[in-house]
Nucleic acid binder design. Structure first.
Length: 757
DNA sequence: GTTCTAGAAC
DNA sequence: GTTCTAGAAC
């Protein structure tokens, strides 16, 4: 929405249906901040009714709040009810404000208790005068009584927020509400956060999706019993400073500390998150319009390649021009606000002060990679301590504009122990400030190119961290695993976003330095560049064999998405278990063609498979066989083969179970045929044997496969083109080659085995 | 992975 | 003129 319509909207008498938004949340959950954010950018007139200040700045009564709300509604204004409202009884009179002309919404700020307490404890000059240590006990007591709202109480819409990203989405939703717009009714967000969700599945789900956000509009969760509402959850990471300890001490004896139960559930831990400042727009005086275009363009390009990871543009001030420009452009481009959002705060204290956990932060560095200059660079070097300077020097001594370098933080760095930041990525952007080195003298053609390169380098660096960390828990690096078991934070080996760095890992992981500026005239496609520049560098940190890390286009994510959230794709899925999902191939290349997809995060393809996946391979094979047998039972003329593509086009390890008739209109070209009928197709039985004895599977590359002639899979006769081949195979009844008849590579119907073989 | 299409092959 | 492939775009 343009800001320009602000005045007209306010001046107009005609409005859509007014709404009353009842905020719910403990002190420190951010209710007032929520209102401020919305009221600042909304094109609707809002009134905030706050019981703490309603009596000319002092606390008033509930009746005064009601009266004030009624008056505002009469004026056609929308109303925020800004009080805790945690119990049903406390809010029911406000719900009654609703009617045919007025909708009542609930926004639940159900943030970690620990976070609310730490904010309340620190707060000075809070309107309700709830500050200092007393806050901890109050918050705890309140949270124990909380009753999450239900639609049946009379709410037209409920938005439940479990983390900062949910909150930001809700702010965006209400801010973007034009005078005549309405938000869809229903329950949005997670109903029973932290409740007993099947952990076996949850730990492999995309973590950002665990607490459903306002984006999942179709998901209207019905009311459920209230017995679970006192179950506490905490998405905060453990051991993050002394505030929670202080809070704990405030509790009276015998009082159950709510926060005490927290921390066990790592499945809801924050997704990998990169916080980055706007590059070059501060001291380097780069044009804000152009910079915001580039940020949004690059974010759009990368955000979907990063799995569940998030990108967050951070600035110190609410008034930041660059944040509002980027916000507007990002929403125009429909960028998923769960994966990318803007955030106001000190980038060096996002976790401790704002409750946003970012495992990676970017620094708008200078070419010397040294502290100084003021701004973000000075702040980050100062917060990172001597350790950051030393670690930086180890990775690079200087950096040209357009480049980035990943620096793993030693565990002694305050940024790691206090904020949970595992890596700093230094980025050098183009400079338009004549007072600084390498000034481009307003050459924005070059400037824009360099800034694009800078963001590409930054996001590639982050992406490499995400990839290497995603693979760690299931990964094969024994010395890392032993390091990890020392870390009491992570007893179960579930994917985490901050892992205690071992020095060894630091060295392997640290090098991500895009050298694009040396060779680029016009920058090439980032995906290619990513794999090129990473080969032999970061991505190999987990791969002893030096294999390249593949990058996946957006169209290649479908299987991954289904594997991670099969319940969202019910119609596509034939079977779901903790380990695999079975589905029909969308474009079957034979009469029967199903895929058995692994549900392990970070297991993209056969190249990622190691010995520790052997059990999974066996499970996949067994499930595949089961389906083949089922199909054979229905049609005994079929023969099946089970195997993997050496270099699949679709991300997420999947086993093809395919009947050998290849009778399908979807089989159209050489690649289709050869991918199932050359050594490129790796039989499941062989893969299991290779992984068991040689640690990994043998792979054949795609290029050599494509150039191969077209041969019948039965009689091995060659054919000039696909149509001719297809007409041949419909009639060929020759016996299969002997290699395929061995070791159970082909699966025949039980009674026919002796005849065909 | 598919779709689209220019132009090569027939 | 039609069939088919292969590369680009998605």
């Amino acid at each position: 929405m343009d800001m320009d319509i602000d005045e007209t909207a306010k001046g107009e008498e005609k409005h859509g249906k007014p709404i009353v938004v009842i905020l719910m949340g403990a002190p420190g959950s951010g209710k007032s901040t929520f209102c401020e954010h919305v009221m600042r950018s909304s094109t609707r007139p809002w009134v905030r009714v706050c019981q703490d200040t309603i009596k000319s700045g002092k606390a008033g009564t509930k009746a005064q709040c009601i009266e004030s709300a009624v008056n505002a509604l009469k004026d056609g204004k929308c109303v925020f009810i800004d009080r805790c409202n945690l119990e049903k009884e406390q809010r029911n009179e406000f719900v009654k404000l609703g009617g045919p002309q007025v909708d009542v919404h609930a926004v639940v700020l159900d943030l970690p208790a620990k976070l609310c307490i730490s904010r309340s404890v620190k707060r000075t000059g809070h309107e309700g005068n709830l500050q200092g240590g007393r806050a901890a006990a109050v918050v705890n007591r309140m949270l124990q009584k909380k009753e999450l709202p239900k639609l049946s109480e009379g709410f037209a819409r409920i938005t439940s927020c479990q983390n900062e990203s949910d909150v930001q989405s809700a702010i965006d939703a209400y801010s973007g509400l034009g005078p005549l717009d309405t938000l869809p009714n229903g329950y949005f967000g997670q109903k029973n956060p932290g409740a007993k969700i099947q952990l076996g599945i949850m730990k492999f789900l995309k973590k950002t999706d665990a607490p459903a956000s306002s984006e999942s509009i179709s998901k209207c969760i019905p009311d459920s019993n209230a017995s679970q509402i006192t179950e506490e959850k905490d998405t905060c990471s453990k051991g993050t400073g002394s505030l929670s300890e202080n809070a704990g001490r405030e509790l009276k004896e015998g009082e159950e500390p709510v926060v005490g139960s927290a921390g066990g559930d790592v499945s809801l831990k924050d997704a990998p998150t990169l916080a980055f400042p706007s590059i070059s727009t501060a001291d380097f005086q780069f044009d804000l319009e152009k910079a915001s275009d580039i940020i949004v363009e690059k974010v759009a390009k990368f955000v979907n390649k990063l799995g569940n990871a998030r990108l967050v543009l951070v600035d110190l001030s609410h008034k930041s021009k660059i944040l509002s420009l980027v916000r507007t452009k990002a929403s125009e481009k429909n960028i998923d606000s769960n994966k990318f959002f803007t955030f106001v705060g000190d980038i060096t204290r996002l976790h401790s002060e704002r409750g946003l956990h970012c495992n990676v932060i970017a620094n708008a560095a200078n070419w010397r990679l040294k502290p100084g200059g003021g701004g973000v660079n000075a702040a980050i070097f100062s917060a990172g301590g001597q350790a950051l300077e030393v670690a930086t020097k180890e990775q690079a001594k200087s950096l040209l504009p357009g480049n980035a370098v990943v620096v793993p933080l030693p565990s002694i760095s305050p940024l790691l122990c206090r904020e949970g930041v595992t890596h700093v990525i230094h980025v050098v952007g183009p400079n338009m400030n004549p007072q600084r080195p390498n000034c481009l003298n307003n050459d924005y053609i070059k400037g824009c190119r360099v800034l694009q390169e800078a963001y590409t380098s930054l996001f590639e660096g982050f992406s490499s961290i995400v990839r290497s960390q995603a693979k760690l828990p299931k990964g094969s690096i024994e010395n890392l695993q032993s390091k990890m078991t020392e870390s009491q934070d992570h007893p179960d080996g579930v994917p985490k976003d901050h892992i205690t760095n071992s020095d060894q890992k630091n060295k392997r992981e640290g090098l991500h330095k895009s050298e694009r500026s040396k060779r680029s005239k016009r920058y090439r496609d980032e995906t290619e560049d990513a794999s090129d520049s990473n080969a032999g560098k970061v991505n190999l940190s987990n791969k002893s064999d030096g294999s390249r890390t593949k990058s996946w286009g957006s169209w290649a994510q479908a299987l991954y998405n289904i594997a991670m959230q099969p319940e969202k794709h019910r119609d596509a899925v034939l079977e779901i278990s903790d380990d695999v999902v079975v589905l029909n191939d969308l474009y079957p290349k034979a009469q029967r063609h199903v895929l058995v997809v692994a549900r392990y995060e970070g297991l993209d393809c056969l190249a990622d498979v190691r010995k520790e996946h052997l059990q999974l391979l066996r499970t996949m094979n067994a499930v595949g066989l089961k389906w083949a047998e089922k199909f054979l039972h229905d049609d005994s003329s079929l023969v099946f083969r089970l195997g993997y593509h050496s270099e699949p086009s679709m991300r997420q390890l999947h086993l093809h179970v395919i009947s050998q008739d290849f009778d399908s209109t979807h089989l159209k070209n050489k690649k289709h045929w050869n991918s199932f009928n050359t050594a490129f197709f790796r039989d499941s039985v062989d893969v299991m044997e290779e992984v068991s004895s040689d640690e990994k599977a043998i792979l054949k590359d795609e290029d050599s496969m494509l150039s191969m002639e077209l041969r019948c899979h039965r009689c091995r006769s060659a054919h000039p083109n696909i149509p001719r081949l297809k007409s041949h195979i419909t009639n060929c009844r020759a016996s299969f080659p002997s290699t395929l008849l061995q070791k159970g590579r082909l699966v025949f119907p039980p009674c026919n085995v002796s005849i065909d073989a």
